[in-house]
Computed example of a mutant assay.
Amino acid sequence: MKRLYHWPLDPAGRLVRLVLGEKGEAFESYASAPWAPHPDVAALAHGAVAPALVETTPAGKLFACGTRAICEQLEELQPAPALWPTDRNERAEARRLWAWVEAGCEEVTDKLLTERVMQWVRRDRQPDSEKLRRGAHALRGRLTFLNGMVELNGNLAGRTLSIADLSAAAHLSAYDYFGDVEWDAVPDLKTWYGRIKSRPSFRPLLGDRIDGTRPVAHYANLDF
C-alpha cells in the first residue's frame, strides 16, 4: 500500500491526491503539516519535504517528494488514464500551465492561505492584514487569467482534462475552503470548477475538515 505524507489543505498534497484518485490508486494518509512535519519524511532523503509518496516493493522502497516528481512517477508507472494530452502541442501547453499555476499561485498560498491557517487553524498569532490584502489581490489576477483559458479551451490546456486542470483545481479548492474565491466574477471558471469537483477523485477533498474551523457553506456543494 502506498503511503502519502501530506497536510489536507496544502495545494501540493491535494494535487497528488487528485492524481492518485484519477489513477485509481489506493493509499494511506499520514499527516505532515508544514509546521510539524512527519519524522518519516526527513528520513527519506536530505531536504525531503511533504508531499511525499512512499511504497515498499519487492525490489525495495520506492519514494518521490514534491508534486512534479510524484506526478511524473505515477504517470510513468501507470500511463492510463493519461493526465498528459496525446497531442504534442496540448501536452506542452499542459506542462507550461502546470508550471504557471504552481509558480503563479505561490504568492497567494504564501500570503492568503498561510494567513487564513494562522487565523483559523493554528490561532497562535493574529493574521497579517496587509498579507491578506496582497494575497487576495494576487488571487483575483490569477482567477482572471484562468477564466480566460477555460473560456478559450474548455479546459486549461485544450480539449481534454490534464495535469494543469488538476493543479489549478487543487489550489482553488484550498482557497475556497475559507471562501476566498470570488466565483461570481469568473463565470466560466466557476462552470469548469463545478465539473472538476464533480469527479470521483475530488470527493475526498470535499470531505476534508480541519480542526478548529469548518469550510464555507458552498465548499462541498456541487451546484454552487
Rank of each mutant, 00 (worst) to 15 (best):
K2G: 01
H6V: 02
P11D: 02
A12V: 02
R14L: 09
R14W: 14
V16P: 01
R17A: 06
E22R: 05
E25C: 14
S29V: 06
S29P: 02
Y30R: 11
Y30M: 10
Y30A: 06
D40N: 00
A50N: 04
P51T: 09
V54I: 08
T56S: 14
P58W: 15
L62K: 04
L62I: 12
F63H: 01
A64Q: 09
G66R: 12
G66W: 11
R68K: 08
I70G: 00
C71R: 06
E75V: 13
P79D: 15
P81A: 12
L83A: 13
D87M: 12
A103V: 07
G104A: 02
G104E: 00
C105D: 15
E107Q: 15
D110I: 05
K111V: 03
T114L: 08
R123T: 13
R125P: 02
P127G: 08
S129F: 00
L132P: 07
R134A: 10
A136Y: 12
H137P: 03
L143S: 11
G154A: 03
A157E: 03
G158R: 11
A164Y: 06
D165T: 04
S167I: 01
A169T: 10
L172N: 09
L189Y: 02
K190M: 03
W192N: 01
G194C: 10
R195G: 00
R199P: 13
P200L: 01
S201R: 01
R203E: 14
P204Q: 12
R209I: 14
D211V: 13
V216S: 09
V216H: 11
